[in-house]
Design a protein around this nucleic acid. Structure first.
Length: 580
RNA sequence: GGCCCCGUAGCUCAGCUGGAUAGAGCAUCGGAUUUCUAAUCCGAUGGUCGCAGGUUCGAACCCUGCCGGGGUCACCA
């Protein structure tokens, strides 16, 4: 058990004791009680608000409760001192041995230090990327991809069963456009002069090989034929080719989905129809006419009766159509059926969307709440825009010419790990800049570098020690005497020990960026600790003439390296052992 | 105009779902290099948490109303 979990259990036992003694009534809600490191380290190692939170239910002043609790907690072996401060905080200071023990705990648990069963095996479906299968991945998709993947990783680590899902929008008009664009490339591959790609079709070169493959397979059978002869076939082939391409692009980032769900199949299976039936039966879908658009009225707008979902009952501006006037499903109509389907096979749903879809959050949340009876937690995580810069100047992008910055280009230029880490250095709902020059800078204001450097430094110290004749790897780690680590050294253990609770809170809040910030803090503490040896040689890690102390310091160093690795792993970033 | 996100030090941003004296990096100023890789570290300066109310033991965080920046307002996807 990690030390925070252990102390939380002690706190609970202390509260039980207070109930037994009659000071606390039984059955008070302990949910709001926290046990966390105080902001100000001079207040001790851990602080609890228990006395203040329970004062109302107990009908006793916080001071009285605090004193009783302090008496219980002060009796624990791990606790060096207890203080009651401010309006009723109970501050605990643990003795050094407790922190030495936690270091052993880190070493013993290794890659699993920080892993928990918080989720209790609950199944969480994370849908992310879901880019239209009409071309390669570009930078606009990148942030959501990384955030979704890190989130999935975190949830798994916290005891959830995670399904990583990609929703393939292969049923709309855009895939017909794709098929026509491919047909043109197909004709081109057969030697026809197709000239400029017409406005409204996808102009990108990436469709050239798709057309060529179809030409090789089918010869000139579909030249000069009407769409009826080839559209469906070309659509299927083109989508498959684009998905292969997308999978390959995602693989460059180390991202692999468990499940690709086809919108066309959702529709073919009749799921939207079933959902519509159910919603009509509950008076949440009705036939009605939309209001005219506000602002300038377009000339081809005319009132038409459509099946509408009552999203305005859930705070949306207006009710939303689930079918078009030609009888086909709108994106929303299919999407709500898709979410209903997902909710049947998961306990909680998470969607990662680009901020440009913010306007559609209310309707889908409303639909999911209605279809699941509000029983399924459903979070839509909006990921804000990324501005691409090069040396501070915005990178020009022209979508019209098909000349966008692809994900493959970016990963090729700066590397997978830099992209992944950088995308997590801002909380998802804040806009961010991605500057090609800055993300590869080897300075401390670049957290990618800074954290990696800390890990490399940890690894290099073991190498240095071996050169000096102290072989850490070959030593008996259980026999290392940690009394050589003093309070200053153990300051690192204090920070390291907060890793498990940080992971849990980040998973609960669905905020993977917290990992990146935590690692940056830990790296800073570690670099600072290392540099103490520059002013005071007796604080150096590697001291050939003092093998015992060196082993103890390496034990600490290696524990910090372990935490850095565990955190980087959650972010999908490879730790490096050496800086070059 | 409606909705969504943001507004915290000169700049870029954190702030652990309401806790104690609001924190980092950059920039500025002052220190530490015959290095356990100084690609680093230590110290100082710097804040009316956009504004005004409200909720309570306690608010940067929750509620209301304004102000400013961005996004979005299709039978598209």
């Amino acid at each position: 058990m990690t030390i925070y979990a252990e102390m939380a259990a002690h706190l609970n036992a202390a509260l039980d004791a207070l109930e037994t003694s009659g000071l606390l009534p039984a059955g008070l809600d302990r949910g709001p009680i926290t046990l966390e490191p105080p902001r100000d380290a001079s207040h001790g190692d851990m602080a609890t608000n228990a006395a203040m939170v329970l004062t109302k239910g107990a009908g006793k002043p916080p001071r009285v409760l605090a004193e009783a609790l302090a008496a219980e907690l002060g009796a624990l072996a791990a606790v060096a001192r207890v203080d009651i401060a401010g309006p009723g905080f109970i501050n605990l200071t643990l003795n050094d041995d407790a922190w030495r023990g936690e270091l052993r705990q880190i070493q013993a648990l290794g890659d699993d230090y920080g892993r928990s069963n918080m989720g209790g095996g609950m199944t969480v479906n994370v849908e992310y990327v879901s880019a239209n299968p009409t071309g390669p991945m570009h930078m606009g998709h990148c942030r959501g991809a990384v955030v979704g993947d890190a989130l999935a990783q975190m949830l798994e680590y916290s005891g959830h069963r995670v399904v990583r899902e990609y929703y393939v929008n292969d049923a709309g008009g855009q895939v017909d456009v794709l098929a026509r664009s491919v047909h043109l490339r197909y004709c081109e591959a057969l030697g026809m002069d197709v000239g400029e790609i017409p406005e409204g079709l996808y102009p990108g070169d990436y469709l050239v090989p798709v057309g060529a493959a179809l030409a090789a397979e089918f010869g000139d059978r579909f030249v000069g034929e009407g769409e009826g002869a080839w559209l469906a076939l070309f659509r299927t082939r083109a989508v498959a080719a684009m998905l292969d391409r997308i999978r390959a692009d995602l693989a460059l980032l180390g991202i692999h989905h468990d499940l690709f769900t086809s919108e066309a199949e959702i529709q073919a299976d009749g799921l939207p129809t079933a959902a519509e039936c159910w919603l009509r039966a509950h008076d949440l879908v009705y036939d009605g006419v939309l209001d005219a658009p506000k602002g300038e009225v377009s000339e081809d707008w005319e009132p038409v009766e459509l099946p509408l979902f009552r999203s305005s009952q859930f705070g949306d501006d207006q009710d939303r159509p689930i079918k078009k006037s030609d009888g086909s499903w709108t994106y929303f109509g299919a999407d709500l059926a898709y979410h209903h389907e997902k909710a049947k096979r998961a306990d909680a749903l998470i969607d990662i969307w680009g901020a440009d879809h913010a306007g559609t959050v209310k309707r889908i949340k409303a639909a999911v709440a209605a279809l699941t009876g509000g029983k399924t937690r459903f979070d839509v995580k909006l990921v804000q825009m990324v501005r691409l810069l090069r040396d501070g100047e915005p990178v020009k992008m022209s979508k019209r010419s098909g000349n966008f910055v692809t994900l493959a280009d970016v990963v090729g230029e700066v590397g997978k790990d830099v992209v992944r880490f950088t995308m997590l250095t801002r909380k998802a709902d804040a806009q961010m800049d991605f500057d090609f020059a800055r993300v590869v800078e080897a300075t401390k204001d670049n957290p990618v570098f800074y954290v990696n450097y800390a890990h490399a430094r940890a690894a290099s110290m073991a190498r240095r020690a071996a050169e000096a004749g102290v072989d850490y790897a070959a030593g008996d780690h259980g026999a290392i005497d940690l009394s050589h680590l003093d309070t200053i050294d153990l300051g690192l253990a204090r920070i390291a020990a907060t890793f498990p609770r940080m992971v849990e809170s980040a998973a609960t809040a669905r905020e993977p960026h917290r990992i990146a910030f935590y690692l940056n803090d830990l790296a800073a503490a570690f670099h600072g600790w290392y540099n103490l040896g520059n002013d005071d040689p007796s604080r150096r890690v590697v001291q050939a003439e003092n093998a015992e102390q060196t082993m103890a310091k390496l034990f600490l160093t290696s524990a910090i390296g372990q935490i850095l690795r565990n955190g980087l792993h959650l972010m999908g970033v490879e730790p490096v052992d050496e800086m070059r």
